[in-house]
Design a binder for these strands. Structure first.
Lengths: 360, 360
DNA sequence: GTTAGCACTCTAACTAAACGAGTGCTAACA
DNA sequence: TGTTAGCACTCGTTTAGTTAGAGTGCTAAC
């Protein structure tokens, strides 16, 4: 059977209606709609066809029609329009994003909370995998008689540090020598290379004079590198999932929240997803816990290289077009921010923010 | 009316029973219990008295008795025994706590997740207020032609840093001079003093020669100080709140989770609580959202000074004695850890960990 | 003071009936 | 041949009524 013009029109109407109201759509309701000159009966016939084709379902005989996941897929791919955000909307997002500029992690977390607030959905934001981040510079700084700070700076601008208790006395000179030697050995290596390549062995024998110091520093160095690889996941608006009717059952809600708050699992799932804007609808999700929801993710990049993800999770009947636009704009903005990195915000999009009020 | 020996015994039995089963306790059940030689009728009379005195309630006429918040308070203050944890239990906690030693924040977050796992409740852990933390040392380090890293080390051992883009060229010497001047000016001041005292003004005129650099650095310095004041709140086991029967209603659960995930509000509430182990039961909580739960918090200290909090939130019918012991041991252990600070774990309690399995 | 006995209360679980929204089908119409 | 009106039918939701069971409160006897 073909998807005639009229069928498409009806399908689209059902989808928009259902997204708005969350109620199954009946033939009568539809026929009374603006621009529908067909009788309920005609529409019923078409709906029966659409159901046969797999685009609609029937919760039970005496209920209206509900779009299937296949219908949403069609809608996302072909039917929906993708209106650009208004200037005001953009301004709101940009302004809110630039509220905090303390550090990278905070900005990412903040982005998640903005996204959740605007969309009224559960949102998350993941910091980039830093496996490919390149070590630029290692430094050891005296603090106490028996404490030094180990500092690692990477190409992406991330600065990691760790206080190290020294079991042997040190001099400023020996500390500097060790810093230089370490920088010499590790500069230009990626974090993961530094961790796997067992450079340490050679290294230690090289500089016997200060092997005592190295013994204190190296384990902390490795730990700090490991720490740099950690991906952080921020999540906001968790309670919004209760608006998904499927989760009005407490035990389902519980297992769903359990899944979402399992950070490691979630992080893995998100990393696996394609870069760019990706929409997964209902049973397109592999995880059975997610098959009542849709997931929209997008990737932002730091310094044009490292890739992090940000997205939302919500009912399959979500406002795909609007939300996709929001996420798209948000990630563009993030990528922008992290290109110029802390260069005191070259007010890229900040523009006209007089009297913009944040009603949702 | 007096709380006779027998009344206390009955009350205690009702409380333990209810904590275990979550079912209202009837007179028959109680009379069949080991060591109860009274008939149901006698017990009923006593129960009626206890109800009149406010220690018991009645969900409805034909249900058993349920302890009131007042009863739990009596229980916590006087009736419950506080058994020390077994060696095995202690070992589990200590071992798990020392699994990650990467950095302070991670350890705190980890403590929260351990606590949640062991108690099967929602747990949280708060990093200390650092208002009173004392600046020890400020350093500026060259990275790029136009980037330096600002580093602040505090007495508590916390190292904060921030990459600073410089709008004017700098030399290693001028950088060192600026570091030294800043250290001279701020060393010994608490973070909050540094933020409020407007030392900057004097400071800038002093060193006109490098005022350009200072202009780049100072705003970042202030931001970093502000950042140091931030208290982080980690929360784990959120989904456990669904085990509280009061929250089997979805809309209640929603507003409860909303409240819990409002980090700033929650942080404020926790900061306000007394130090040491504090138990708040049901309607003793000011927040109406919390009046169906009990809250147990305890404080740990870092370096003997800064105070953070850790605790659980759960149904009023929680295992007060066990949980209090666990939290107590956990905070002792944390305080201990942060006294010796990263001194490669002086295996204080690690002891016998062969074949300890973690059944709850 | 303690206990047995019994009427009473109230919830939870189940059943039945009425309601209503919406369908599917048939037959008539343009 | 596509469209529409009409109507019987289905099925979930709501309301009311019934029953069973757990537990109480009170009274009277021990």
């Amino acid at each position: 059977m073909e998807l005639s013009e009229r069928k498409l029109k009806i399908l689209q109407a059902i989808i928009s209606d259902y997204i708005k109201t969350a109620e199954p759509v009946g033939s009568r309701t539809l026929s009374k709609k603006e621009g529908f000159d067909y009788s309920p009966a005609t529409i019923r016939n078409e709906m029966a066809d659409l159901e046969e084709m797999g685009y609609l379902t029937h919760p039970h005989t005496s209920a209206g029609r509900v779009p299937s996941d296949k219908a949403y897929r069609l809608y996302v791919n072909e039917l929906m329009d993708r209106p650009e955000l208004s200037k005001d909307e953009k301004a709101i997002i940009a302004n809110r994003l630039h509220e905090t500029t303390v550090d990278f992690e905070k900005t990412i977390a903040h982005a998640a909370s903005i996204l959740s607030e605007i969309t009224n959905l559960t949102s998350f934001a993941m910091t980039p995998k830093k496996t490919e981040d390149v070590i630029k510079y290692i430094n050891l700084l005296p603090v106490d008689e028996d404490t030094v700070v180990l500092m690692i700076v990477s190409e992406s601008g991330k600065v990691s540090n760790k206080a190290v208790k020294m079991s042997v006395p040190y001099t400023d000179d020996s500390l500097e020598l060790l810093s230089k030697t370490m920088t010499y050995n590790y500069k230009g290596k990626t974090v993961s290379q530094a961790l796997t390549n067992n450079i340490i062995a050679n290294f230690e024998t090289d500089v016997v004079a200060m092997s005592g110091m190295a013994e204190d520093v190296m384990p902390n160095f490795m730990k700090t590198l490991e720490d740099m690889l950690n991906v952080n996941l921020y999540m906001e608006g968790l309670s919004n999932i209760f608006d998904i009717p499927e989760y009005s059952d407490v035990s389902k809600a519980k297992s769903f929240i359990e899944m979402l708050t399992q950070k490691e699992e979630m992080t893995k799932k998100l990393i696996e997803r394609d870069d760019g804007i990706t929409v997964t609808i209902g049973d397109e999700n592999e995880d059975s816990n997610l098959q009542d929801c849709s997931l929209i993710t997008a990737s932002y990049s730091v310094d044009g290289k490292l890739v992090g993800k940000i997205g939302v999770i919500g009912p399959t009947r979500m406002k795909y077009s609007k939300i996709t636009s929001i996420i798209e704009y948000l990630t563009e903005n993030l990528t922008d921010t992290f290109k110029l990195e802390s260069g005191e915000s070259t007010d890229n999009d900040k523009g006209e923010n007089e009297g913009v009020n944040e009603d949702e």
